[in-house]
Computed example of a mutant assay.
Amino acid sequence: MQSRMLPSYYLSQDVFAREQRKIFRKLWLFAGLTSLVPDNNSFIVRKTAGIPVVIQNFHGQLKAFENVCLHRSAPLQQGFCGRRALVCPYHAWSYDVSGRAKNIPDCDAIYGFGEVEKQSLKLREFALKQVGSLLFINLADEPMPFEEQFQAEFVESLQSAAESFDSEVMVTTWHGRFNWKLVYENLRDFNHVKYLHGKSLASVASFPFLAEGSAEQALEPLMDISSAGLRKTMRPFSYGGPEGVIEAIRDVPWLQRVERWGSQDAYFNWLAYPNLHIASGNGGYSFTIEHHVPVAPDRTDVEIYFVTAKRKAPYAASYQVLLANMHYSKKILSEDIEMLERIQSVLHDDAPIPTQGAYESTNRKIERWYATLMETGHEL
């Protein structure tokens, strides 16, 4: 059975622009961790679907605004994260918790704004949702309800795990030379683990799966292409829980220093479509969080966060534990990323369409949804 994914879906700037408008500016997207904005004036800077965003802490209240000053379009905050009041470094315009310009130096003397004009100066605000330690943002003027994108049982599982994250976090970024969709096709394909990760992940974990149906079963039910129908079809794209069988967990000293999430010795995965993957390869003692940021048709930034479960008390070696987890996770990720970059490098307009097997039924359902959204005038 042939895939529905045409080479242009991974190469075309026009398709990439449609994705940004139809998917990334409509859906709830992972944007960061609350541990990065713990105090008043702490902030995170994002670029989401091409739009610069700042998530700012105002005395414990988190708000998300377009990171552009209303005077001369200078970025209000810079860097990945930090601690600074929401003040433009160019001409010192400052903004309050509602996004309104609260102070414009020498306003009466040199700007001449009337009171009505000053009151109208308000930053564009975006919807923000907290799930445990995870922050999600929605760029739409009228955001869909969170529960229309994610099933209740998935949110419950995700929140339970995310509430266990420790506040100490290590972050790194990988600038990948591949299309963002290749990541998710790979994450939903357990068949590659024993081959691509034969000497790494496959040596400590296995991922049993059941093929559904057969490759010859080409008939599929009609899809409801209304906005409500497309949203309903999309909900199962995000899922989480135990998906792999792991070897017995070695009793190393740091495991006794954290409050383990859960009690099941399993490899856990959570996939929040379209830009978040969380994995715990040791049954809830630590977590690798992957944030996938599409940059261009052939470029994806992979921001990787490493956290353990909550520490019972501070301990001197916690940084080394995170560093060791990072090095191990990066070894596996490097194998994936190298393969995805190889795939991207051989794509061209007349490239052969992939042939799929029965076990790839989930990928096929998502391809159908994606092609319907990209090739019609329908919107989420």
Rank of each mutant, 00 (worst) to 15 (best):
N138W: 03
H175Y: 11
A140S: 11
G241M: 06
C107F: 02
Q61L: 06
R250C: 04
F126E: 03
Y319T: 11
D108V: 12
S167R: 13
S12D: 13
G262R: 15
Y10D: 04
S345L: 05
Q344D: 07
Q61M: 14
D251W: 05
S164K: 11
D298N: 09
W369E: 10
Y239S: 11
A351M: 07
Q356I: 01
Q130H: 10
P294G: 07
V307Q: 10
E341N: 09
A248E: 13
I332Y: 11
L219Q: 14
G50S: 06
M1C: 04
G112A: 07
E163R: 14
G132V: 09
S42Q: 01
P145H: 07
H348G: 09
G229I: 09
I137G: 00
L222F: 09
F287P: 00
H175A: 13
R188C: 06
I289Q: 11
T372Q: 14
K102Y: 12
G281R: 08
C81P: 02
V307H: 08
Y111H: 12
F146E: 03
S263Q: 06
I366Y: 14
D39H: 09
E247D: 12
A313D: 14
F16L: 02
L27C: 10
L255R: 15
A296E: 12
E379T: 12
Q264W: 07
I337V: 15
K310N: 12
L210G: 11
E220I: 04
L36M: 11
F146D: 02
R342Y: 08
W254D: 03
W93Y: 08
W174G: 04
G283F: 07
D96I: 00
V155H: 07
F30V: 05
V307K: 09
G198M: 07
L196H: 05
L139C: 08
L276Y: 13
S157Y: 12
F113E: 02
P236L: 00
R368V: 00
N363P: 00
F306N: 06
